[in-house]
Design a protein around this nucleic acid. Structure first.
Length: 477
RNA sequence: GGCCCCAUCGUCUAGUGGUUAGGACAUCGGCUUUUCAAGCCGACGGCCGGGGUUCGACUCCCCGUGGGGCUACCA
């Protein structure tokens, strides 16, 4: 039997980091085993589901390169792939349970239930549904229904016994049926609840492995009971650990960027994010860097850990820097160019390319190039105060700069291999350490003490700018 | 409250009864260099606590503690 897994987000917000990792593990599992990766949108919450969130989820998955074999926009034999388009299927199964006496109508209002819950809590009892409507007679049901009273459908649970979840990551987890209550499977708006729709859809879509967040483990016995009620074979389950924020609380907006797309906006590369989240809760020996192909090759549920993981931006940053250093120059240029144009207006593309390449090795996040390269695009910069004290207020600073200016004026063509000897020759003639020339020069040209290698900067800036800036420096000496 | 899951450096993790408990990020130091990064080398730093089991426990069992989850007409 071929493996079929699914990622089943609800479109109530952007694709967040946790969801992305769940999607990734499912995707890797399918790709590794030559199975199918299915995307199903669980949009049965009419209040919270939005079209925008739906698009955001696609966008996030696409950015990470997690393509689905069946799902929205990719027809498959077992669709549709929006849960709300499967309502007849759900209804049919609701009816079946009702008919078989495995489910029943409940007319208790939310207010009544809430009141009972509070009372139970006050008595320090578990807030479980008390089964009021379980014993309703046929005639009563009919009458209540005809009176237009809102109703839900509840699943009738076996009152005793154990339900065992056989989890691929956690082993066997035993739940006592008596601790569960008759949960709602169809809401008063006629929509199925999560636990029900999930089971019906997973079964009818022939899902073989349910790989999902740890937060669903406690829901699993309810779902298994449903499978059993239908006489179905449950899929295999694998509950992966959650991702937490620095404060060990579940990752949320409070922790800053949580949506995958936010990471794109901040300047992370999709391969870095992919690599990072793959390693959150999963390991393959000591290896840290994995290409997409390696991930597919090496992924296994056996490597998934049981404990939750804290999201560590520092490590993500390190990975991102590593990936940036490895990407093709053309790609880096494509990434940086719009940011530079936005910040500094239009400039010659060739010039922009040279600037970008000068910073290729020194970026952790793409947008860092904007402030770092400021001096390449504007004369409007101040000298760093401390640097000024150190490198401009030396006895022969003026002499050095004047001589440097004269010499550079004669360089032709103005390329770094012609520029370098000027600096070195000058140092030798004046019996100075090279730094004595380079430091003030860097300060004159960039206003700072940090820049790409000096000769590169001089060349890229060009003869005219270099002269102007050295003059400006001399004037301030 | 009840039930469930989890527990190795600050963080991500390797480990599967006998190891100097390994790697990575971060931090700190050194080297290199025209600066800053990068890179290389090194340092710091960990088996949550208590009981068992065993010749021997990070590893197995129990209890505690801590963290997380579920307990919705959310998913």
């Amino acid at each position: 039997m071929t493996v079929r897994v699914r990622f089943a987000p609800s479109p109530t917000g952007a694709l967040h980091i946790g969801g992305a990792r769940t999607a990734l593990f499912n995707w890797l599992f399918a790709r590794k085993l030559g199975g199918k990766f299915i995307l199903r949108i669980e949009d049965t919450d009419q209040q919270r589901s939005t079209l925008e969130a739906n698009r955001a989820i696609f966008h996030g998955l696409e950015w990470l390169g997690l393509d689905w074999d069946e799902g929205p926009n990719v027809d498959g034999p077992l669709g549709p792939y929006y849960q709300t388009e499967r309502l007849e299927i759900h209804q049919k199964h609701i009816d079946q349970l009702l008919k078989e006496g495995k489910a029943y109508y409940c007319f208790c209002s939310p207010e009544e239930l809430e009141k009972k819950r509070q009372e139970a809590a006050a008595r320090k009892e578990a807030p479980r549904y008390d089964g009021t409507c379980r014993k309703l007679a046929e005639a009563e049901i009919k009458q209540l229904a005809e009176s237009g009273k809102r109703k839900v459908v509840r699943f009738l649970l076996p009152p005793t016994g154990d339900t065992i979840v056989s989890d691929l990551i956690r082993g066997e987890v035993v739940f006592k049926n008596e601790l569960l209550d008759d949960f709602v499977i169809q809401k008063s708006d006629g929509f199925p609840t999560y636990n029900f729709a999930c089971v019906i859809d997973d079964h009818t879509m022939e899902i073989t492995h349910v790989i999902r967040g740890d937060d669903h483990l406690s829901n699993t016995p309810r779902q298994i009971l449903l499978y059993l009620a239908f006489g179905w074979q449950p899929p295999k389950f694998a509950h992966i650990p959650m991702i937490l924020g620095k404060d060990k609380a579940r990752l949320s907006k409070r922790h800053g960027a949580t949506s995958v797309i936010a990471y794109s906006d901040i300047g992370y590369l999709p391969e870095a994010v992919l690599n990072y989240i793959a390693r959150l809760g999963w390991a393959h020996g000591d290896q840290e860097i994995f290409s997409r192909e390696e991930l597919i090759e090496k992924f296994s549920l056996k490597g998934v850990s049981k404990s939750s993981a804290i999201f560590d931006t520092d490590k993500l940053n390190w990975l991102n820097g590593k990936y940036i250093r490895e990407i093709l120059p053309e790609r880096l240029i494509d990434l940086c160019e719009p940011l530079l144009i936005e910040a500094y207006g239009n400039h010659d593309l060739e010039y922009i390319k040279k600037v970008v390449l000068a910073f290729h090795d020194r970026l952790t996040l793409i947008p860092e190039i904007v402030p770092l390269s400021k001096f390449f695009f504007t004369d409007d910069f101040e000298y760093d105060q401390k640097a000024l004290e150190k490198h401009f207020k030396t006895v022969n600073a003026k002499k050095i700069m004047e001589t440097l200016k004269e010499r550079l004026a004669k360089v032709e063509p103005f390329t770094k291999d012609k520029i370098e000897p000027v600096f070195k020759g000058l140092a030798q003639e004046m019996d100075l350490k090279l730094g004595m020339i380079i430091h003030p020069c860097r300060l004159a040209l960039t206003g700072t003490l940090q820049s790409p290698p000096m000769y590169d900067v001089v060349e890229i800036l060009g003869k005219k700018k270099v002269e102007e800036r050295i003059e400006r420096a001399i004037a301030s000496l």
